[in-house]
């Protein structure tokens, strides 16, 4: 096999930079986090093997289950809003309005604003006493809620901020999907006398199915990673109301220095995301093509 070996040697300089990074900073740490989850690592002393003790501790921990529930509500809430609003915004952005370019720019602008700036801005806007949002509501005769400071509304508030920041991406992806659709079908339906609402519901939205699958999963996976907002806005509070799984990992690892337990949480997060990823692949294989 000297020929094959020579081919591999010739390709190696091209492949090595990327593959080396993937191995050192993705595959090796994946193995390492699995190992750490079976130890009592705490960053101070050498880790001791504890078997499944961290996982047992998690299963018995009410905070863990509540964190899973909060993560699910957050993920489903943000994804549903981003997909629904994203689609509606895409239709509006595709319409020939005078403000078309400004509209596209405005909807996408928060995507460009950093997570840290988003948190700082909304912390001010949602100030329960006399932040701009509550003063605006007051002007309309509505008593504003406590937003981030009230356990009842904190999670909904973080969802609101996450959607403001994130919906621009689904909107733009749907817009690209809309622009890629053939015009003939819609024109034919219009000639047959179908109303615009019927065309949207019966033709355009089904044709967008492949885009929708992509958008749902980009949104869903993104929500698992947006705990940076929680880190700055609420620190998981008040009363644990916004304790997302991702934040819980950060807190256990870098505030409480319980690396072993935090690693077990990471493995749980990985298992969840891997399941989602596999479902997405299965859906993509079977995905509906009308064209």
């Amino acid at each position: 096999m000297p020929g094959a070996l020579l081919e591999l040697l010739r390709a190696a300089p091209y492949l090595l930079p990327a593959l080396l990074i993937f191995v050192v900073f993705t595959y090796y740490p994946l193995a390492r986090v699995l190992y750490l989850s079976l130890t009592d690592a705490d960053m101070l002393s050498a880790p001791n093997w504890v078997g499944l003790a961290n996982y047992r501790q998690l299963l018995a921990d009410r905070e863990f289950w509540s964190s899973l529930g909060i993560t699910a509500v957050f993920a489903v809430g943000v994804t549903a809003l981003e997909v629904g609003l994203g689609l509606a915004l895409a239709f509006l952005m595709n319409a020939r309005t005078r403000t078309q370019s400004l509209l596209r720019g405005a909807v996408f602008a928060p995507v460009v604003v950093s997570l840290a700036a988003t948190a700082v801005i909304w912390n001010y806007l949602l100030n329960p006493n006399s932040g701009p949002v509550n003063r605006l509501l007051e002007g309309l005769g509505i008593a504003g809620p406590g937003w981030l400071s009230d356990p009842q509304t904190a999670l909904a508030s973080v969802i609101l901020v996450a959607v403001w920041k994130g919906v621009g991406l689904p909107a733009v992806l749907f817009l690209a999907g809309l622009q890629g659709l053939p015009a003939e079908l819609e024109e034919a339906a219009a000639i047959d006398g179908a109303s615009r609402a019927t065309i949207a519901r019966r033709i355009t939205i089904p044709l967008l199915a492949p885009t929708t699958v992509v958008v749902v999963f980009i949104s869903l996976i993104g929500t698992f990673q947006s705990y940076g907002l929680v880190l700055l806005l609420t620190s998981g509070g008040p009363a644990g109301a916004t304790n997302l799984l991702g934040y819980s990992i950060y807190q256990n690892a870098f505030v409480f220095f319980q690396m072993g337990l935090a690693s077990a949480l990471s493995v749980v997060l990985f298992a969840l995301l891997l399941t989602l990823g596999i479902i997405q692949l299965k859906l993509a294989e079977r995905r509906v093509h009308y064209q």
Binding site: L15, A18, L19, F22, V23, V24, F25, T26, Y27, Y28, P29, L30, R32, V33, L36, M43, I221, F224, Q225, Y227, G246, I249, Y250, A253, M259, A262, S263, S266, V267, L269, F270, L273, L274, G277
Partner: peptide, 23 residues
């Protein structure tokens, strides 16, 4: 090797926060 490269898309950075910090 291509699968090795693409496989990293299935492993989000947040899962790797702790081991990468230690590395």
């Amino acid at each position: 090797l291509f699968a090795v490269a693409l496989g990293t898309l299935m492993i989000p950075g947040d899962v790797l926060l702790i081991p990468n910090f230690i590395t």
